[in-house]
Design a protein around this nucleic acid. Sequence first.
DNA 1: CGCGGCTTTGATGTTCATCAAGTAAAGTGG
DNA 2: CCACTTTACTTGATGAACATCAAAGCCGCG
Lengths: 229, 229
Amino acid sequence: MAKKIACDCENCDLQALFYDSVMANELEAICYQKAEKGFKKGERIIQAGDQIQEFIYLKKGLVKLYKTTDDVEQIISIAKPLDFVSMLSIFSGNNYNYSVSAIEDSITCNLEFDLINDLIKTNGTFAKSVLKRMSLISDKIILDNLAIRRKHLKGRVAFVLLYFADTIYFSDEFELPISRREVAEFIGMTTENVIRTLSEFRKDEIIKINGKIIEIVDKQKLKNISSYG
Amino acid sequence: MAKKIACDCENCDLQALFYDSVMANELEAICYQKAEKGFKKGERIIQAGDQIQEFIYLKKGLVKLYKTTDDVEQIISIAKPLDFVSMLSIFSGNNYNYSVSAIEDSITCNLEFDLINDLIKTNGTFAKSVLKRMSLISDKIILDNLAIRRKHLKGRVAFVLLYFADTIYFSDEFELPISRREVAEFIGMTTENVIRTLSEFRKDEIIKINGKIIEIVDKQKLKNISSYG
DNA sequence: CGCGGCTTTGATGTTCATCAAGTAAAGTGG
DNA sequence: CCACTTTACTTGATGAACATCAAAGCCGCG
């Protein structure tokens, strides 16, 4: 279960970026009442439908943003710290529209939502920085979704592999943090076809597979497939 | 070409909602420097890549939000007044990420972007209302896209017809404001299959077709198809 | 009045989902 | 810690859904 962990605002990577606009005295108030929570891989951080009471952002880890309809799960985005996924719809209404789960051990920093609301009202610079961040998140999700939509099965799988290599792990060898089924839920194809495509890439010596460990061998070819060449 | 038209802030439907939070003296300044522009059906309002200099919102009409990649056009959303589509990515960077074109004769109200920025910084209530609106737009786009993704060809076409009937025209008989090709670009299928599906709905007496005029005859059946029954 | 774009229908082939069946891995209770 | 159960992974065969190609009629516009 999610448990509170020690506070260390001073060392938080997000501090500079997030509180850029916040005055010292405000920052103190925020730091004082914030709560950090740890989540193990697989644990749910936000459940769609829940009432919004906290302003949650990712301090460390990796999460998936998704929605479940009639037992069908659709992954909307994979987000890392600074993507502030929880921000996405919290100003729309009183309840979350999406679920968020940790796909790697993660730490969130939680603030009373009212506090953030007050801050937005009283601190224009902060409001603007929240606006910008929300805008960036939306853009990323919409553009990624459009990019995926344009591609066929192979291009979509290639896209996901490049996504993890280039924007999450910054390495051509990494452990895939999600299952084949989740890849399928992300790109809108079936699990079997994701597996088939990965096997094909392996046979064509574009990647090496060892369970969850993926190594990209021929990156240029993978890029070509992703761009649909 | 887009031309300036007479100013009538007093009668603007958007005024109450948009300027809810704006003080009288601020409102005056805004009204004074705003510019309204008219666009004929088919005219482009925003070109992806253009520099963002104005804060544009739809006063009247209907527009499509889209993106062109390698000569392939993908429609992201169909928006009516109060959807404030132009707001979507204007806080992300200096240039538009998406294009917007009128699909019906439309009127926009344009404000200097700097003015809005100042307002956000000085008026917290306004900032919060912009945040809320942006959040609603993102949610709508993301949720609609997820809904479409879940469906097969017939369900997607049904979804689009119900979308126009229930959220745009509030009537079961309407003139489709976009071409068959654009419907295809919206739902991610081919023009031919959109046409085939419409013909099938006609043969099954679910709708009547007269060129661009569509009449929904058996709405319940259309809803079932949309929900994928 | 002819040209180009939009619409329509048919024929064909590709892509992908579904079904089936088996192996490997991971979690669970005695 | 091991038998047991469940979940994830994998491959193949089949059929359905959809794209592509082709051809022709229609409409609006210069």
